[in-house]
Computed example of a mutant assay.
Amino acid sequence: MKARIFGVLSAGALLAACSDTGAGYTPVLDGAPTAAFQSDLSSCQTLARDQRQFDQETAGAAILGAGAGALLGAADDDGSALGGAIAGVLAGGVAGATNAADRRKAIVIECLRGRGHHVVG
């Protein structure tokens, strides 16, 4: 039981560590950066980092994954609803964190483009 609780806590810590991923992205530019690039990059990264609704969506995905995993685990022959819930939390949380990171990265790119920088990707 303690190993399962440790696994859930470890997964939660891993997801929390990933919550800032994407906001720290430094894109590739077409040409030399302008004098304002570093300042604009910092502002755009802060903007992306401040989008906390992505963190809420990641938590929601983890909860849905836990529910689905628990149902599937209970329906399995060994009836391990807890094991299924843990697997579901991991799967849902990782998927949500990946989606949030991609969206934060897109914010950085679009913000820099909006400020006149020639961002390739």
Results as ranks from 00 to 15, higher is better:
residue 3 A to G: 00
residue 3 A to C: 00
residue 4 R to G: 06
residue 4 R to K: 11
residue 4 R to C: 03
residue 5 I to L: 05
residue 6 F to P: 00
residue 7 G to T: 05
residue 7 G to V: 04
residue 8 V to P: 01
residue 8 V to I: 15
residue 9 L to Q: 01
residue 10 S to W: 04
residue 10 S to T: 01
residue 10 S to N: 00
residue 11 A to E: 00
residue 11 A to V: 07
residue 12 G to N: 04
residue 12 G to S: 06
residue 13 A to L: 15
residue 14 L to Y: 10
residue 15 L to F: 06
residue 16 A to T: 09
residue 16 A to Y: 12
residue 16 A to K: 04
residue 16 A to W: 13
residue 16 A to Q: 05
residue 18 C to Y: 07
residue 18 C to P: 01
residue 18 C to A: 14
residue 18 C to G: 15
residue 19 S to F: 05
residue 19 S to W: 07
residue 22 G to Q: 04
residue 22 G to Y: 06
residue 24 G to S: 13
residue 24 G to Q: 02
residue 25 Y to D: 03
residue 25 Y to M: 07
residue 26 T to H: 12
residue 27 P to S: 11
residue 29 L to H: 02
residue 29 L to N: 02
residue 29 L to S: 06
residue 29 L to Y: 01
residue 31 G to W: 07
residue 32 A to M: 13
residue 33 P to W: 12
residue 34 T to L: 04
residue 36 A to E: 15
residue 38 Q to Y: 07
residue 38 Q to L: 12
residue 39 S to K: 09
residue 39 S to Y: 05
residue 39 S to R: 11
residue 40 D to C: 09
residue 41 L to Y: 09
residue 42 S to T: 12
residue 42 S to N: 06
residue 43 S to V: 11
residue 44 C to F: 03
residue 45 Q to F: 11
residue 47 L to N: 08
residue 48 A to S: 11
residue 48 A to H: 08
residue 48 A to R: 08
residue 48 A to I: 08
residue 49 R to H: 15
residue 50 D to Q: 15
residue 51 Q to V: 14
residue 52 R to D: 13
residue 55 D to Y: 05
residue 57 E to G: 03
residue 57 E to C: 01
residue 59 A to S: 11
residue 59 A to W: 06
residue 60 G to Y: 10
residue 60 G to M: 13
residue 60 G to P: 07
residue 60 G to E: 06
residue 62 A to S: 12
residue 63 I to S: 05
residue 63 I to T: 09
residue 63 I to Y: 00
residue 63 I to D: 00
residue 64 L to D: 04
residue 64 L to Q: 09
residue 66 A to R: 02
residue 66 A to K: 03
residue 68 A to K: 09
residue 70 A to H: 04
residue 72 L to V: 15
residue 72 L to E: 07
residue 73 G to L: 08
residue 74 A to N: 10
residue 75 A to E: 06
residue 75 A to C: 10
residue 77 D to F: 05
residue 77 D to Q: 12
residue 78 D to G: 01
residue 80 S to F: 15
residue 80 S to R: 14
residue 81 A to M: 12
residue 81 A to V: 09
residue 82 L to T: 09
residue 82 L to C: 04
residue 84 G to K: 07
residue 84 G to R: 11
residue 86 I to C: 10
residue 87 A to V: 09
residue 87 A to P: 04
residue 87 A to L: 15
residue 87 A to S: 12
residue 88 G to P: 09
residue 90 L to K: 03
residue 90 L to C: 05
residue 90 L to W: 03
residue 91 A to H: 00
residue 91 A to P: 00
residue 91 A to Y: 01
residue 91 A to C: 02
residue 93 G to Y: 09
residue 93 G to F: 04
residue 94 V to T: 10
residue 96 G to K: 05
residue 98 T to F: 02
residue 98 T to V: 11
residue 98 T to L: 05
residue 99 N to P: 02
residue 100 A to T: 03
residue 100 A to W: 00
residue 101 A to S: 15
residue 101 A to G: 12
residue 102 D to E: 07
residue 103 R to K: 15
residue 103 R to I: 03
residue 103 R to T: 14
residue 104 R to D: 01
residue 104 R to W: 01
residue 105 K to V: 07
residue 105 K to L: 12
residue 105 K to D: 10
residue 106 A to V: 03
residue 107 I to L: 13
residue 108 V to G: 10
residue 108 V to M: 08
residue 109 I to H: 14
residue 110 E to R: 12
residue 111 C to N: 07
residue 111 C to F: 10
residue 112 L to R: 10
residue 112 L to A: 11
residue 113 R to L: 04
residue 114 G to Q: 10
residue 114 G to A: 10
residue 115 R to D: 05
residue 115 R to L: 12
residue 116 G to D: 07
residue 121 G to F: 01
